[in-house]
Amino acid sequence: MARNESAATAVEFGILALPFFTIIFAILETASVFFAGQILDSAVNDSSRLIRTGQAQTAGYTGDDYRDAICEGLYGLFDCTDTSKLRIKVTTISDFASAAPSTPIDPSCYVSGTNCNLTVAQTYEPGVGSSVVLVEAYYKWPTVVNLPLFNFATMEDGTRLLAAVRVFRNEPFGSGT
């Protein structure tokens, strides 16, 4: 009877199952967060070209049109209809030295843990030829695995804040050169 090991595998699996599945889910969550960040960054990069080359200005894009251009590059992985999740800000700045991304949430959120909504105002000012433009996109990506020490959420509501920013000088379109 002392040598009977018929349930040893089940007991060992029971002991190791929680850490094993925690690590598996942490790997999957990490992959999904990085994948989402890359998709958002790529969509902002591709849509910024419309502004940089003057195509958006020539076509008379509005903020909603530009939002649609970004959403086309998100391949349906993001909820583009909810402005509480996706905020886009396009502003013209004086020069590259003055490029500073916005604070997307209220800084008191980190202290109090409340009011962690996106506070960056949505604007669309694509500028004219040779303008320096700052394009910012922020998205609250939902996290699935919210375990202690394996939590990718950066916001109180269990989401992770993703950001993509581009600063560029528009081509000299419309100036006859």
Rank of each mutant, 00 (worst) to 15 (best):
S48P: 03
G63W: 04
F168C: 02
T30M: 13
S175W: 06
D46V: 05
G63R: 00
M155W: 05
R3F: 08
V128G: 08
R3I: 05
A137C: 07
I88Q: 02
Q55R: 07
V11E: 10
T159V: 04
L161C: 06
F35D: 10
D157C: 10
Q55D: 09
I105V: 15
A164K: 03
A26N: 04
E72Q: 14
V133H: 00
L77D: 12
G158P: 00
T91W: 01
D41P: 02
G158Y: 00
E171Q: 11
A31F: 14
C116A: 12
D95H: 13
V90K: 01
V165D: 04
L162N: 04
F168L: 02
C109P: 02
C71E: 02
A153R: 06
Y66M: 06
S98R: 11
R87F: 01
L18Y: 08
G113I: 13
N117H: 12
V11L: 07
I51P: 01
F150M: 13
I70L: 13
R49H: 07
N117F: 11
A69L: 07
G174S: 08
A7G: 15
M155K: 11
E72A: 09
S42W: 02
G176T: 07
S94D: 15
T119N: 15
W141M: 07
F21I: 15
A8I: 03
A137V: 11
R160W: 01
S42I: 01
P142G: 05
A137Y: 08
Y61D: 07
E29H: 03
P148L: 09
K140P: 04
V165S: 03
G158H: 01
T9Q: 13
D95N: 15
A56H: 02
G174F: 07
A31Y: 15
D64P: 04
P101R: 15
G37Q: 09
G127F: 08
P126H: 04
R169S: 01
A59L: 02
N117D: 15
V11W: 01
